[in-house]
């Protein structure tokens, strides 16, 4: 009986771990307005990490196009997209997750790159080498990095 209980316990743990597996980019469920209801990583986001992802050239580099007053120490913020000040008031968590993962599902034709999309590109490249890449490409951000960015964006209140 005890052995059965331990086995059950392990099975339950394994099931729990499976639930926390990231949703693959191809399997993401967007609603009709482009929002994503549940965490892509199965885990909550970390706003401090999200701040790093947004500021770093090698990661999200969101500030290349967007101004964020809360990141005043990050130089050369861009003017291509809207300012993200107050983003946490303008969009809810599911909407922000959808916009960061694939903004074209929310705003048709937007210039914003899709950060959690791996195929369907024209002449997909191997990162910045200029050489051909093979789809599915690695997404620009991981599931957890997207959750982290969403967590940071939710802190931006007017």
């Amino acid at each position: 009986m005890r052995i059965t209980a331990i086995t059950l316990g392990i099975t339950a743990l394994a099931a729990g771990a499976a639930l926390a597996d990231p949703v693959e980019p191809m399997s993401v469920k967007y609603d009709d307005y482009g929002a994503i209801e549940t965490s892509l990583s199965g885990m909550p986001g970390d706003a401090v990490e999200g701040k790093k992802v947004m500021s770093s050239r090698g990661l999200g580099n969101c500030v290349a196009c967007h101004e964020v007053s809360a990141l005043a120490d990050v130089p050369f913020q861009g003017e291509i997209g809207p300012s993200l000040d107050g983003a946490g008031d303008r969009w809810n968590e599911a909407e922000l997750r959808g916009i960061v993962a694939d903004a074209k599902k929310t705003y048709d034709g937007t210039m914003m790159p899709s950060f959690y999309k791996t195929s369907g590109y024209i002449r997909p490249g191997n990162a910045f080498t200029g050489k051909a890449g093979t789809e599915p490409l690695p997404p620009l951000l991981t599931a957890q990095q997207i959750e982290d960015v969403v967590a940071f964006l939710l802190t931006l209140k007017d």
């Binding site: 002449r123 997909p124 490249g125 910045f128 200029g130 050489k131």
Partner: peptide, 12 residues
């Protein structure tokens, strides 16, 4: 041109 297309993460 080559550099610009490369910077879109494309096969230039």
């Amino acid at each position: 041109f080559k550099g610009c297309v490369r910077d879109t993460r494309a096969e230039t």
